[in-house]
Design a protein around this nucleic acid. Structure first.
Lengths: 357, 357
DNA sequence: CTGAAAGCGCTTACAG
DNA sequence: CTGAAAGCGCTTACAG
């Protein structure tokens, strides 16, 4: 007999059939199952959770009632009683950014391995929105939080962390609190990338990066400066540009440092979005300009020339952070740590272009 | 006085200080706040929820208690009582695929506008995993579900939908149940793309697509066949290849149809991953071969030649689906609908290459 | 093997 | 304006 034919069996005193979906529609509960199977509530609970101590016959009766009613345990109620929600939150900058896709997926896989679901949100690089999201996730009592911070003050999380919410920052460190963080070696990666350009004969090298309140932007700029200093090159202010990464500003910045009497002969770009815009600018120039970009790009190897990049392992960042999170949740008290993942210089052509005369 | 100095004020009968984080660590509840402020539970609830009917003085006392204890409302408990969880689930194929990033982000934005959080999961194109995920989300009592289906039988969702879980399928239709679905015009897009190649003089045109159990793969193949038929071209079996989209198989398929005595002079690729692999194959060939790909790619315009594509609007798919979902949740009963979004042919060069002799 | 009672942390529906 | 009681749907801790 079809499940739906049984709907009227449900106790009449339960939610009336109002259209507007209060009470999750009108779902059967363990109590309904117990009544139908003629057993106690606890017995239903045992069957649903696969606990021992139920005779085969009782179990069968309960199973039948479950199927007839279309019962599905309300984990929301379960969670309230048990304490752990088996869900973790991920606050990132923008789900649509190709850098965060693999990172999210890696976090998700680790969560899945631990039986947890992932709640995801984009801060859109807005500190207020980051806070709003993180606190909303805490109110839902996620067991832990993986945060790619937009802001630089995370004291708002102190009570939550104290209350037991595991927290790991990724890609950028926490601000004004002591917390686990998993980073790429932004400084070293940028330094190596710029040193690579220097090794290929460049001295006038431009740097176009993200807003200076972003940690990675500062670190990469620091790497640029270090490489230049190591080579004894005095950096001119007009070679550096930090700011929002929208195509308009980046295009202007690139055009400025590439024009005038003493243009740069090479550019180091501070992230994937900047790199893409600069590639477009360079494609319109009559002379070749060398380019090394931070972050890898799909199809980068197929461009002419191929784009030399300092690649981060986004998936490894996510995986490492999530694993650390669950280690925290395992109960062992860990003191906050800073984990740094190496970057990799991938030579494809654009970084090996010599300076044009 | 610092918040932490107040921790010992919490009633001693509440959770002991065990290290392993049961009971969400050791969080204060409304009851604790009420006790500290010397008011009733309901008054705390009123203040926390900004309900009227509390004198300024009482409100101040409650607020003080809230801050001193570091109280944050447990939405998990709230949800149990209220019926709606203000969260929706998104089951997609792979968070790391660049096609799903913008789609997820769009769903998230709509959810946010409705005050809901997004729980995200990847099916990895595995029907069992899709089901497991979707049902886990239902057990968490998400208000609604946006599903990019991997399987072709969704009868398992019938009890959930009947129980009030709003459901919208995206990118591919539901199997064996009647549900809302938001699709791109896969058939028309593929037909136009192939017709474009024909208009540029090609007759021997290859098609490389995804596994034939995937709806979009079938529709795009159908579009290919329709365009060929419209032009009076008899398609040879060796021109078509459907299967997993891993680079190995796609590469072999492309190489096969591009070799032999009568190779194809143009290729139509069935999705972004296939396109990327085929671009690599074509880059290694001595003669030019025309290419039109389904799905747009970042940097596609910067390749030589630029890649002509049939572009879908991934963000519009996500937005439309999520809006439909919340329309369902608004209570008006809507009969299942099929919404089709147009695709756009973007000419960039590769699709305008003439047949080589 | 089985189940009644209490409780998780809130909101609802009342009563004062 | 304020609050005590009941209840959301489960699990826990017992007792039989």
């Amino acid at each position: 007999m079809p499940e739906t034919a049984r709907r009227e069996d449900r106790p009449a005193d339960r939610a009336p059939d109002r259209a507007s979906g209060t009470r999750y529609g009108n779902r059967p509960t363990m109590k309904d199952v117990a009544a139908r199977a003629g057993v106690g509530l606890k017995t239903v609970s045992r069957v649903v959770n696969g606990e021992p101590g139920v005779t085969a016959d009782t179990e069968r009766r309960v199973q039948e009632a479950i199927e007839a009613l279309g019962f599905r345990r309300n984990d929301s109620a379960r969670v309230l009683r048990k304490g752990r929600t088996a869900s973790i939150g991920l606050v990132l900058e923008d789900l649509a950014d190709p850098f965060y896709g693999p990172l999210s997926r890696a976090v998700e896989e680790v969560a899945r391995a631990h039986g947890a679901l992932l709640i995801n949100g984009s801060s859109a690089e807005d500190p207020d929105r980051e806070q709003e999201l993180a606190l909303a996730l805490c109110a839902r009592r996620v067991d832990g939080l993986v945060i790619i911070p937009a802001g630089d003050d995370h004291r708002y999380l102190e009570p939550e962390i104290k209350a037991g919410v595991a927290t790991v920052f990724v890609d950028r460190p926490a601000g004004r609190i002591d917390a686990d963080v998993v980073l790429s070696d932004n400084f070293g990666g940028a330094r190596d990338g710029v040193a690579h350009l220097i090794a290929h004969g460049h001295r006038r090298i431009g740097f176009i990066g993200d807003m200076p309140r972003i940690h990675t932007a500062i670190e990469r700029l620091r790497g640029y400066r270090a490489a230049m200093e190591d080579a004894g090159i005095a950096v001119e202010d007009s070679w550096m540009s930090l700011g929002v990464t929208d195509p308009e500003r980046v295009r202007r910045a690139a055009e400025e440092m590439l024009s005038g009497p003493d243009p740069v002969t090479a550019v180091f770009t501070g992230n994937n979005r900047v790199t893409v815009t600069v590639i477009r600018v360079l494609a319109g120039l009559p002379r070749p300009v060398a380019l090394v970009g931070f972050d890898d790009l799909e199809l980068a190897d197929l461009l002419q020339p191929g784009v030399t990049v300092v690649a981060q392992d986004a998936a490894a960042l996510g995986r490492t952070a999530a694993e650390r999170l669950f280690r925290q949740l395992d109960g062992t008290h860990l003191s906050p740590e800073r984990i740094e993942l190496p970057t990799r210089l991938v030579q494809r052509g654009s970084g090996e272009v010599p300076p044009s005369a």
